[in-house]
Nucleic acid binder design. Structure first.
Lengths: 390, 390
DNA sequence: TCACTTCGTTTAACGACTAAACAAACTTGA
DNA sequence: TCAAGTTTGTTTAGTCGTTAAACGAAGTGA
């Protein structure tokens, strides 16, 4: 690697245009060559040539004739979503959820397992078994399993090793390398919140929205930051520790070293603690049930958590000026009881300029944001490779 | 504009390569064609051809022969920094500072005026006069004044209009349009903190550092966020209102609607207020003088402000995981009295992963960060245009 | 049936890049 | 001083990807 070569050459332009053509077929369903040419601005001849390459790579198929617009019938082209499959895994603290998707991210198979034993050795073994199950479920296809994406509850470095996972007790595991060696396909590891953000950005509430902050409210609070449709990672690859944004400089001490961290006030943990102080059953689902049954203490409790959620979200809004903030993970189940309080709290605390455009949403994919996002990592890695090599 | 045309074509590659060549000449001083070819990986023939175009555009000059490396002497090429000049303006609350720079951003002339009357009509008139002065100072050159950049103390929209400038009382001024019409060159308006961030990124403490947060601590606190070497602007173009990050959710109410905003605790205003409560003279410079004279009350005051500065910076670090945080604007004059307290406070409050790489710096350009950055806006707009059209 | 569309391929040409050859200019050592 | 070897930058020939235009195939509609 004597030469990093950040050069601009000519095959680059073919890559760019191939990507443009593929994208338009993927996003706008069946299209004819003529339509692609018109939409992209590329010449008909160019489109024909690029489509030929894509058909050779089995990424695009002719699916027959379309209806005539007063002339020769067009030949419709469709993205071959079944040319391969991706595996997405959401590695939870006490569960493993997995999906098998096609290349468009549509779920083909879905499974969930409870994590039997939390220690690293058996956890890792179980994870491999789960992935193996999904691999066996794959209908045969041109490319087979194109990759595996895994969302984990902790901090991950740029080599796909888990650096720190407080609730999982898996320290310093080179997860990417291990899984890659075991299955022989590209593996991407990222933190659960980033995966969730990707999931919502591609398949959920944030589709097509450029600036979006995904707030994963579970036991703690994690966040995935999407700017200009791209996941933002900081200098060292671990940004977005918004759960440790301090909302009270002299507040409760947090194990992270800071004081008054947001997640101490607005996470599921905080909810449960407060509930127990009130003598309520300390379980998210039972609290939701209580609220449904009109228990005013439970309702008030959610209000208060919503209020604190809003405090942090207001900070996020002032910092990032995003298009949307998406609240996801377990706590989003209580959206009905949180929504108003969050919105009011944010409204009270943000500059009107920001407020005008910004919207607060709850995750559309519910507890599937992270698995879907994880699968997307695998898909996008594969497509990037196919486009650039072939 | 029926066609947005996000296409990938062939002239694009020439643009890319021209930019590569120009950049290497700009950054690595005098270079021969052969050297450029070697460094960029472009073919010698390609370099020759691109250099010819750049010489036609007067952006690059041959400055004579270099020393031989055992063969024919190379012809050295130099970026023609004097082909044009840029004007940068820092529009303060009670001053106007202006610079005239060459195309490398070197200051050729510098002037400062006090703002005579704060109202909009006379302020605008004075601003125009100041710019006119700088225009007249320009040594004649091929392109003349290539553009004007202005940093303003307020929120600016994407059309260069001042939306809100609490300390200036210039509401809803279409500054860009006005100045463009008056001087007939491209004008860029941005907020003072963004301009300062650019200045430090290009010419100051942040040179070449990808992820950098510039914290402008003056009367209030503003911030400029540079991610991947690019200024980040949010969905509506005004992000970075980190001054209104709440560090105490039930703290003092702020005029922005939020409570406990950072700038209420860590700005020059906060300093002055606290000083007055202590019976000290409420002026930044006199407080610095007092500290120099070993006045323990003043020293303790700076410590306390530094501590609060650190609280906000810790939040920033947890959110963005930047390479550096740069403290700029007026308060950076007191760096000696702030440094330790800030660093300690940040150390106590950030995750060790973040802390490892991150450094806290004070603005190298001191109170010139914003003017220099403003001039850079003009330069970069010009170069972008020249590269893409010619 | 005829005039007119529309689709997708073929053809010819262009523009940008590269490798290789080359001439000019220079160094070095005998 | 001269021959051999280097280095620089241009010239030449060729490649690759794109485009405009022409064209044949396939349809519509009156």
């Amino acid at each position: 690697m004597a030469k990093p070569k950040p050069t601009g050459d000519q095959t680059l332009i073919k890559k760019i245009n191939t990507a443009i053509v593929l994208d338009s077929v993927m996003k706008e369903g069946p299209l004819s060559r003529a339509q692609i040419s018109e939409r992209t601005g590329l010449n008909k001849a160019t489109v024909s040539s690029l489509v030929l390459d894509l058909m050779d790579a089995h990424l695009v198929d002719e699916i027959g004739q379309g209806v005539s617009n007063g002339g020769r019938k067009p030949v419709m082209l469709l993205f071959n979503a079944q040319a391969g499959h991706a595996i997405g895994i959401d590695l939870g603290v006490n569960y493993i959820r997995g999906v098998l998707t096609d290349l468009l991210g549509n779920v083909v198979e879905e499974r969930e397992w409870t994590m039997k034993r939390p220690d690293m050795a058996s956890g890792l073994k179980q994870l491999e078994n789960c992935i193996q199950k999904l691999v066996e479920l794959e209908p045969s296809s041109k490319y087979g399993i194109v990759g595996i994406g895994i969302g984990v509850p902790g901090i991950v470095d740029d080599k796909g090793a888990i650096l720190f996972a407080p609730n999982l007790a898996w320290d310093r595991v080179e997860l990417q390398r291990l899984i890659e060696e075991r299955f022989g396909v590209p593996v991407t590891i990222d933190n659960e919140a980033n995966a969730g953000a990707q999931g919502e950005q591609k398949y959920g509430a944030g589709r097509g929205i450029p600036h979006q902050i995904y707030v994963s409210v579970g036991i703690g609070i994690g966040t995935g930051i999407i700017l200009n449709k791209d996941l933002y990672k900081g200098a060292s690859g671990f940004s977005g520790e918004l759960g440790h944004l301090s909302i009270q400089y002299d507040g409760k001490p947090c194990r992270c070293g800071n004081r008054g961290c947001w997640e101490l006030y607005a996470s599921e943990n905080a909810l449960v603690e407060n509930a127990e102080e009130l003598g309520l059953e300390g379980e998210l689902d039972s609290l939701i049930a209580a609220a449904e049954a009109n228990d005013s203490r439970a309702i008030e409790l959610f209000r208060s958590i919503g209020e604190y959620l809003g405090v942090g979200i207001a900070n996020i809004v002032n910092v990032f000026n995003p298009d949307v903030v998406i609240i996801g993970n377990r706590m989003s189940r209580a959206s009905r009881w949180l929504e108003c309080a969050v919105q009011e709290s944010v409204d009270r605390r943000t500059l009107s300029y920001h407020r005008e455009r910004m919207r607060i949403l709850f995750a559309e994919l519910q507890d599937r944001s992270a698995v879907r996002g994880a699968a997307y990592y695998a898909i996008s890695t594969f497509l990037r490779k196919v486009r650039n090599v072939e």
